[in-house]
């Protein structure tokens, strides 16, 4: 720690490194995975995020969807200006990266249920590989709008065929897998045999799984979003309840999610203005 109390690891995590994209994979019609040389000097925990800088456009938080010793991957759905531009990038293009940031998932041995909806499956993919590595009995439930919006399908099915995970895919219109939502499937599977439930996806999904986990008294962690600006716990822009998503999250446990209270009910815009979600 320096005399100024700005420790080296913090400086390191918040330095914007300019990196080249080495590979892009079109996951579905509006979602792309981008891979770059691993710029991090510390090993990220699944659930941690990066701030991706598109010079001249914006800098946005993206969770880590892939990580090995050489390569960092993020998965982005084109919904706004910055994410659409990111989705259009090609190998050779450069972006700025800082991270790994925030608090990730807790790895618990035993049996786990991983529930994801839409592009919310991104941080869960990296988590699933880590769970497999440490020998956790992993049950995966992914839900998508329709077949055209499915992500990581082949990859997850390969893991399932190899017997490394149990997998259940659902689409709302039934065009692939079960005609159901991720919640429908998860609520049927969830019982006291699970040692941890991990969730990421639409807040409505997180809120309903939270209710279920409280009823059944099961431990749960979910990754949530906030309007991120500084990413270092100082500006307060990403506040949910009385917690900062960038510093106290993005992964919160069941009790903190309950304390936050507003999950799936309201969120903040850039100005801090609160808007209802229901």
């Amino acid at each position: 720690m320096s005399v100024y109390h700005i420790d080296r690891s913090m400086l390191d995590r918040h330095r914007r490194r300019i990196v080249r994209i080495v590979r892009r994979v079109d996951e579905c019609l509006d979602t792309v995975s981008l891979y770059m040389h691993n710029p991090f000097s510390s090993d990220p925990i699944p659930g941690q995020f990066t701030m991706i800088w598109i010079p001249g456009v914006d800098e946005i938080p993206l969770s880590i969807s892939y990580m090995d010793s050489c390569i960092l991957g993020v998965t982005v759905r084109g919904v706004g200006e910055a994410t659409r531009i990111l989705c259009s990038l090609q190998p050779g293009d450069t972006i700025g990266v800082r991270g790994p940031l925030g608090r990730g998932f807790t790895i618990v041995k035993g049996r786990s249920l991983v529930v994801g909806g839409g592009v919310g499956v991104a941080p869960l993919r990296y988590l699933i590989y880590r769970l497999i590595d440490v020998g956790v009995d992993t049950y995966v439930v992914f839900g998508f709008r329709d077949k055209l919006h499915t992500i990581y399908l082949e990859e997850m099915e390969k893991l399932s065929v190899e017997g490394r995970i149990k997998l259940c895919i659902a689409t709302e219109d039934g065009s692939y897998g079960f005609k159901a939502t991720a919640y429908d499937i998860a609520s049927r599977i969830l019982d006291e045999s699970f040692d941890m439930v991990y969730v990421c996806g639409p807040e409505e999904l997180i809120r309903r799984i939270l209710v279920l986990c409280v009823e059944k008294d099961l431990p749960m962690e979910a990754s949530i979003e906030g309007y991120m600006k500084c990413g270092m716990g100082v500006c307060g822009s990403c506040v949910r309840g009385a917690y900062l998503v960038c510093r106290d999250g993005p992964v919160f446990d069941r009790d903190k999610l309950l304390e936050i209270g507003e999950i799936g009910l309201r969120r903040r815009r850039a100005s801090g203005t609160i808007e209802p979600l229901l």
């Binding site: 320096s2 700005i6 400086l11």
Partner: peptide, 21 residues
Amino acid sequence: PNPTIILLPYGLINSMGLPNP
């Protein structure tokens, strides 16, 4: 828009631009 903050070994430079509701 971001970037709105830079961390340096001796402090921060911020340009939040007075966001408020």
